[in-house]
Computed example of a mutant assay.
Amino acid sequence: MPGARTPALTRHRYGTAALVAFGLAAAGDLAALALGADLGHTILKPLLMPLLAAYVVLRQGPPLLTAALLFGWGGDVLLLGEGDLVFLAGMGSFALGHLCYLALFRRNGEGHGTARGTFIVATYACALIITVALLWPDLPPDMRIPVAGYSLLLTAMAFGATTLGLTAAAGGGLFLLSDTLIATDVADWAQAPRPDFWIMLTYLAAQILLTTGVRTGTLTSESAPARP
């Protein structure tokens, strides 16, 4: 019936508007970072994840995906501040988001064959060990354990994303890259010009790819016939 379809159509349109607004805010934020306009970044960064979360809600995506994005928003806002405690709080908020993603992957992922799964686990494990080993001597002593623990959780999330298809896997890998770039800054390694631009570029790409991968994977799992 036309009347019954109207609310769904309205949600769909508002969802599209939220996604377009996210794209515009993301482009503006990246432009601000590229130009060194700190005020623009400070204004636009807190808008990004709420807009993406609004898109998920309006398109009736899983609540855990909305929660993951909002925990990402918490991390985004906290990392606008300064100081070790603020940084650790931001890292904790992102960690909660990773737990939400892991729960989604566990619920909707398809798993791996033995050989493939072993290879992917070994690859991510090697990446984790090498990265932490290289960063460890240069990290502030009070940051070493938190960064190592967070890196373990982040790597588990990136591995889990591979069970939901290539789109989600790419998102997990880019999230891992983005946070590794942050860790190199904490370790006071030499940085590329405009390092915040590259961090945000990989982070925003990660979140939109994870969002797309999770929504697609959720719709696929819901439409699949029940197993006997």
Rank of each mutant, 00 (worst) to 15 (best):
A156G: 05
G117K: 12
P141R: 13
L79E: 04
P146Q: 05
T114Y: 06
L102D: 07
V147E: 00
H98F: 09
S151V: 00
R106T: 11
G75N: 04
G81L: 14
E110T: 12
E110Q: 15
L99Q: 07
N108A: 13
T163S: 15
A133V: 00
A103D: 06
A133D: 01
L135N: 00
L80Q: 15
F105M: 14
H98L: 09
F87W: 14
R106V: 06
G83T: 08
F105E: 02
T131S: 10
L104R: 10
P140N: 08
L69N: 04
M143Y: 07
F105R: 11
R107N: 07
A67W: 15
G72Y: 07
I130R: 09
F94M: 11
T163E: 14
A103P: 03
G74H: 05
M91W: 05
R107F: 05
F71K: 10
L135H: 00
G83N: 10
V77K: 12
A89R: 13
G117L: 10
A148R: 03
D76W: 10
G111V: 10
P141I: 05
F94C: 05
T123A: 15
E110W: 10
A148T: 02
T131V: 05
L104A: 07
G149Q: 11
F105G: 01
V147D: 00
D138I: 00
C126Y: 12
A133R: 09
L154I: 09
D84I: 11
I129E: 05
M157I: 12
F119V: 15
L79S: 03
A148W: 01
G83H: 12
W136V: 01
T123V: 15
A127G: 06
C100Q: 07
F119L: 15
H112A: 04
M143I: 04
L69K: 12
L88F: 10
L99H: 08
A95H: 03
M157P: 01
I129K: 05
L153P: 02
A103H: 13
G75Q: 08
L139N: 01
T123Y: 14
L102C: 13
G149L: 15
D76I: 05
L96P: 00
R116P: 01
G83L: 12
H112E: 06
F71R: 07
G149S: 11
L128I: 04
F87K: 12
V147G: 00
G160S: 07
W73V: 06
S151W: 00
V86R: 14
Y101N: 03
T66H: 08
L128M: 13
L69C: 09
L79V: 07
L128D: 01
T118I: 09
L128V: 01
T114C: 06
T155S: 11
A127H: 08
V147L: 04
G97D: 03
G74S: 05
G75V: 09
